[in-house]
Structures are given as C-alpha cells and as structure tokens.
Design a protein around this nucleic acid. Structure first.
Lengths: 283, 283
DNA sequence: CGTAATTCATTCAGTTCTGAATAGGTGTCC
DNA sequence: GGACACCTATTCAGAACTGAATGAATTACG
C-alpha cells in the first residue's frame, strides 16, 4: 500500500467525486481514479461505492476513515514541526481574516511587510468560512472570538468600536423604537452576533431591508440608501457616502483576536509579520 | 510532501544506510537516495547528516521521527483493519513460532490446513527474534509467555511437558549433584528460563558443555553425546538417538500461548487456521 | 601496504505514471 | 425535448521514475 494513496482516499471521501478531489489536490481526475483503484487493489477491498450520487464510502471504507485521518494529522504535524524550525525569512505565509478587516486593517500592514521582507510570499484569504490552523489551511488567523484549541496560540489584538451608519444625505439622528426605519444587518446565520442583537433590541420595530454575511456589502448597501447599518468604525468611517447616525447610544464594540499553531511559533516569517501587525494595530 | 516518502525516511532512520533501507523496503539504493532528497526538498530541511557512519538523524530529523512513526502506526492500523474484514479464505498468513515447535507441532497441522484451504498461502517463520504483531510482521505468534499488550488477543494453547534426555546408549539414570556430568543448555541470554534454572539447581556441579538458543540444535548435540539436555518432550521423543534419563525428578513443563492482533480477529483465514490448530493441539 | 567489501552518487535505458483529450452516461434547467 | 453541466472511464503521447551498472570514496583486515 502506498501511504500517499491515503491522501487520495481522504480527498475522495471528503469531496465525493474524483474531479473535485483532484482539484483539491492539484491532480487530474484520471489519476484519482487510478490511484484509488490501486489502493483498493492493495488492500483487496472496495472502499467506495460508485453511486449516481458520486463516491460514497462502503462499510469498510467508513471503518478505516478515522485511521486515514490520523495519518493525515501526523503527516501535517510532521510538516508543521519542520516549518516551525525554519530560520530563513522566505517562503509562504497564509493569513486568514474577515473581508473588511483584511481589506482595511491588514492590507496596509502587509504591504509594508512586503517591502521589508520581499522574499516572503504572503497570501491573504478573506473568506466567510473559518480556515483550519491544525490542518494548516492558514498559518495565521484573525477573528472576533478567541481560540480555545490547546494547540493554538491566541492573543487579543485590538478593540474595534462599532457605530450606526447611514447615507451622507440622510438624517443624523434617529430616535424611538425604529418604527419606519429600514436596516441592513448580518446574515441570519450570524444573527446572534452582539451588534445584530443590540440593533434588534435598540430598534425593535425597524424593518430588516437586507442581510449579508459580508460587512463590505453591508456598507455599500447602507451608503446607497438601503437602510441603516451597524458597522465597525474603521469600515464605516472609510466607506465613502456614509456618516454616523446618532441613535442615542453606542453599539458594543468587539475584540479581535489572532491565532497561530503552536508548532509554528518559531517560524521566523510568522514572527516577523506578527510583530509588525502588533506594532501597527495592537491597542 | 509525499506521504510515502515518510516510509523511506523511517527505513533510513532505522537502518542507517540507503542500501539496507532499500533492501528492507524492496526498493533500490538510488531510489532511496532520490526519495529522501525529494522529502528534504519538500520540507526544505536537512533530515540526515551524511557521516562516515552512515545516515544519522539531524536535530530536526529527530524531532519529527515520532510523527513519522505515528503515521506508520496508523497506516498499518488502516491495513490491519481492512485485512480483518476480509471474508474470503485466500491471501497470506504469516505465523511465527520457535524452531522446534514450528517444525514438530505446527508443520503437520499447517500441512493439513494447506490441503483444506489451498488458496491460503501460509508462511511459517521460526526465528529467535520476536515478531511484532502491531507492525504485522506476523499475523499469529506462538510463544511460551502470554501476551500483555492490550491490542493483542492471547490464549493458552497447551502444556508442554519437559524431560531430561541423553544419548540412547548412555546411562538411563543419573543421580547426585551432577559431578562429572556434561550438559547442553540454553544460550546465556536465555539462562533464566525455568528449565535452565531447574537444571542448574538439580545438577549444580554439572559442566555446561555447549549452549544454543535453538532447541533443535540442543537435541542433536545431545543425541551425539555432547551431554544431557532438558528438552520439550515432543522434541526429545521425536529426535532419533535420544532417550529419557531419570534424574529422580521431572523438570517443570511450560505453557505455550498464541496471540494475534485484535484488528485481525475477523480475518477468516486466521480464524480457520486458529480453529484447526486448537482442535489438533489444544490441551 | 594492498585487497576486499562497504558505502553513496551518477548514468542511462526501460518502465510506469501522468494529464489532456475524448467518449459515454446521468441529472438539471429552460 | 434539447442544451448544458457534471460525472467516470479510456486512450495515448510525453514526462517522471525506477533499477542495473558503474564510478568514486571510505573502511576493515590481513
């Protein structure tokens, strides 16, 4: 049995089709099919059922999935452990954050970092989904909750104040219970975020005009008159066409945290970007 | 990084040279060198120091050895788990036992088994060294100590009586403290085995003429007049030129145990050979 | 000191494996 | 129903990898 084929096995198990698995691993669909066939021949067992829904694990396949996952875990730990001892200031660095934070807060700092360390290739991923640090989908993650995994080193970076915004030519004050007011707020999946709940409590009668999981989109909708929005002040203040609206009370702010894998704590380029980010942003 | 290269890494770490590692994996020395170079390039780190003593792990290499070992463990568990669900009665089966036990006790039973299940290829390894069940160096092990690893299923197979033997034309009785008697006994490494200790206590003045870790060798030496020997009765009674010698007391017998890996308990061919061995030998 | 037996590195022909292209099947949407 | 998107299997030329052979350097030993 080729150990590398376990990675193919995992990819197919996760994606469900050869094509998708191939794309994820940067291989081709015929190769996936052949390597899987080779694995199944080596263990003399059918691991997947070929259904019209795609490749679904057989009973035996399910039984060994956990083993393959632990192989992956240790193989990744092997790589991380070595990456962590790299003293040179070159190589890749993958950073993940929310959209507006990456655009407005990180991008300028990373631009400066790029000038200081031109041999480090930084990749900034802004995505709604959370990237996994243990799987090394990202080396450094910024987010608004602290990290509780024991293998992740976490620290509070800064406090972000929030405010209510509306279009520049709209009213500067809004009182009452929100009767007749339209608002732009978070996606229903994120409806329990503190600012969304604050807004619902402060303006209970307000009508939700639009929702988005993307703060940038909210800001633009707001500037174009779709409704009021609670936005991080760095975003609201930087978005043309927006002005703060006084509703008699300030919304709660939020702390932003950063996290990285323990194994990478000695990775020089991570250290370097960390130091710069903290110097420029920490409060 | 190719996960398969971790297996090359492990083999080189264990063997110390490319050639030996290649032999163990059934590959060639140039391939080992190239694959290791590829691994080192992938992690961008030197894993081995090329010394005149061979390949020795660098600091970084040592640090990740444990990870590679855990990858191996899980990959082997993956294979075992699947082998354990094989319902067909064909494939390989590797059995390990001591020399005389394999020759006299197991060989006839395995011959019968071969007639019953011709598609199963049984490999009987008789070796002084203990084969590892977790690493699947053997599927079924017979030995004189019970197994205490939690993942190994163990059972007592039978009691083997022992007796003192000498050449057919020698004396039938030996009394006293062994003064002037020559004996053949276990290798010094196994000197603390119950029968060896019993002999030393029973005939304290006897002179040790020869030692061997191999019971078959002991029996032949004994038959050719090298000295008395404590032998398992199945061996002593079956060896031409030997007769039992009365020293006034019977040596202690020993229990023989068999063990196999938990993961293989549903392996049909293992079950089959197990049932036959128990039917023919258990007592 | 010289021979034999190691070791690893390099070369090169032959095999194996890869991916682009293609064919064939299935489900979805207009 | 037809166009489309997506899937897997197959083909085939080219790239990548393999191992036998060889070279070079070192150690062991008489």
């Amino acid at each position: 049995m080729e150990w590398s084929d376990l990675r193919i096995f995992l990819a197919i198990a996760r994606e469900g089709t050869l094509g998708a698995a191939a794309r994820r691993l940067g291989l081709s669909q015929p190769t996936m099919g052949r390597r899987l066939a080779a694995l199944e021949a080596a263990v003399n067992q059918t691991l997947f059922q070929r259904t019209s829904e795609g490749f679904v694990l057989t009973h035996e396949g399910t039984a060994v999935l956990a083993h393959a996952e632990r192989v992956e875990e240790e193989a990744l730990a092997f790589e991380r452990r070595l990456a962590g001892t790299q003293a040179q200031l070159d190589g890749f660095l993958r950073i993940s954050s929310s959209d507006w934070f990456g655009r407005l807060m990180l991008a300028p700092v990373l631009a400066e970092f790029g000038r200081l360390h031109p041999r480090v290739c930084v990749e900034l991923l802004t995505d709604a989904r959370l990237y996994s640090l243990p799987r090394r989908e990202a080396d450094l993650v910024f987010r608004i909750r602290s990290f509780d995994e024991p293998e992740v080193i976490s620290r509070r970076l800064l406090h972000i104040p929030y405010a209510v915004y509306g279009p520049v030519h709209g009213p500067r004050n809004v009182g009452g219970d929100g009767e007749g007011i339209r608002v732009v707020t978070m996606d229903t999946a994120f409806a329990d975020m503190p600012d969304a709940r604050w807004l619902a409590k402060k303006l209970p009668k307000a009508e939700v005009a639009m929702r988005s999981n993307n703060r940038d989109v909210q800001a633009i909708l707001c500037a174009q008159g779709a409704g009021l929005a609670v936005l991080p002040r760095p975003l609201g203040d930087a978005t043309p066409g927006l002005q703060q609206v006084d509703v008699g009370e300030q919304p709660p702010g939020r702390d932003t945290y950063l996290g990285y894998h323990r194994d990478l704590r000695r990775l020089a380029r991570l250290r370097a970007v960390l130091d710069l980010v903290i110097a420029r942003l920490a409060s």
